Amino acid sequence: MSTAVRPPAAATVLADLGPVAQVRAGRLTRRLAQLFVGLWLYGVSLALMVRGDLGLAPWDVLHSGLIRHVPLTLGQAVVVMSFVVLLLWIPLRETPGIGTIANALVVGLSADVTLALLEQPDALAIRAALMVGGVLLCGFATALYIGAQLGRGPRDGLMTGLHRRTGLSLRVVRTGLEVAVVLIGLALGGVLGLGTVIYALAIGPLAQLMLPWFLVPLPGTTPARP
């Protein structure tokens, strides 16, 4: 019996591609479908956490605070902030892809549609289930849209751009960004709670676990640096 160590599966490797190469890499129908399903479900997950009313994801703490001061729905705030963040890509020299623009538009639309259809329950057990379901669904949706390999979302691109420009680790940059947006969101009256903590602790491991299930391998591409 052979004792050779098997190499990592190709499907677990993210490709490092520019926006044109992303489109030309093949399997576009599958990848576009997966991208938009993932982004729509991401918006649904946001709405589930809102209706759970036990705390939101860090960026959504900011969005929920913003809508207390401007005449926007939560989904519209997600869209507006996405394009504000994209402006910050310019000095960082980040290049958006199809997935970047789709992310900026679809997540907010999906969140508003779901919120219009889903009422907030009174029972704590149901609200807790919605919160936990939202976190789990967000991990699933993240794996779907990242696995399509059609570009980073606005907030992810801000993180990677700051990482490249500052030399700080991705972990430090992500933590710094999320602490900053939570503090700003709280100052604006945003919603912080147990769900925020659970999301912060669980979303990375969940996405890492699920990504290999949905990552579309693109033959002939260069793997991204870890």
Rank of each mutant, 00 (worst) to 15 (best):
Ala116Met: 13
Ala111Asn: 13
Ile203Ser: 04
Thr12Ser: 15
Leu48Ser: 01
Ala141Leu: 13
Pro226Gly: 13
Leu177Tyr: 12
Asn103Lys: 08
Ile98Thr: 13
Arg155Thr: 09
Gly18Lys: 12
Leu46Gly: 03
Leu14His: 09
Ala129Tyr: 08
Thr100Ile: 12
Leu150Met: 11
Val5Ile: 15
Gly193Met: 08
Ala25Lys: 11
Asp16Ser: 15
Ala128Ile: 12
Leu201Gly: 00
Pro219Arg: 06
Trp213Leu: 15
Ile101Asn: 03
Leu117Asp: 08
Leu144Arg: 06
Ala207His: 04
Ile198Cys: 11
Arg152Leu: 15
Ala187Cys: 06
Thr221Glu: 05
Pro71Cys: 05
Ala11Lys: 06
Thr29Pro: 13
Ile198Phe: 14
Leu87His: 07
Arg93Gly: 06
Leu192Asp: 02
Leu86Gln: 03
Ala207Gln: 05
Arg24Asp: 15
Ala11Cys: 00
Thr114Phe: 13
Leu86Lys: 00
Ala10Trp: 05
Leu206Val: 03
Val79His: 01
Trp89Asp: 01
Val37Tyr: 12
His69Arg: 09
Asp112His: 09
Ala224Lys: 14
His163Ala: 11
Gly97Gln: 08
Asp53Tyr: 05
Gly189Ile: 07
Gly75Gln: 01
Pro91Trp: 07
Pro217Leu: 07
Ser82Lys: 01
Leu62Val: 02
Ala25Pro: 03
Gln76Met: 14
Phe36His: 15
Ser2Glu: 13
Leu74Val: 07
Ala128Val: 14
Val70Cys: 08
Phe140Trp: 13
Pro121Asp: 11
His69Ser: 09
Gly133Ile: 10
Leu115Thr: 06
Leu188Tyr: 05
Phe214Tyr: 14
Thr12His: 07
Met159Phe: 07
Pro19Val: 10
Gly204Cys: 04
Leu17Lys: 07
Phe83Val: 09
Leu72Ala: 04
Pro58Tyr: 01
Gln76His: 07
Leu17Cys: 09
Leu124Pro: 08
Glu178Trp: 11
Gly38Asn: 06
Gln34Ala: 10
Glu119Tyr: 04
Pro96His: 02
Leu218Glu: 01
Val135Ala: 07
Ala33Asn: 02
Gly185Trp: 03
Gln208Ala: 15
Leu41His: 00
Gln22Tyr: 06
Leu144His: 04
Ser45Val: 04
Arg93Thr: 10
Ala125Gly: 04
Leu168Met: 14
Ala25Tyr: 13
Thr3Pro: 03
Leu194Glu: 05
Pro205Asn: 05
Ala47Ser: 15
Gly185Ser: 06
Ile98Gly: 00
Ala104Ile: 06
Arg225Met: 12
Leu32Val: 15
Leu48Phe: 12
Thr73Gln: 00
Arg174Gly: 10
Gly220Tyr: 07
Gly26Pro: 05
Gly38Ala: 12
Leu144Asn: 08
Ile203Met: 09
Leu41Thr: 06
Gly147Gln: 09
His63Lys: 05
Val113Cys: 04
Arg152Trp: 12
Val216Trp: 03
Ala224Thr: 13
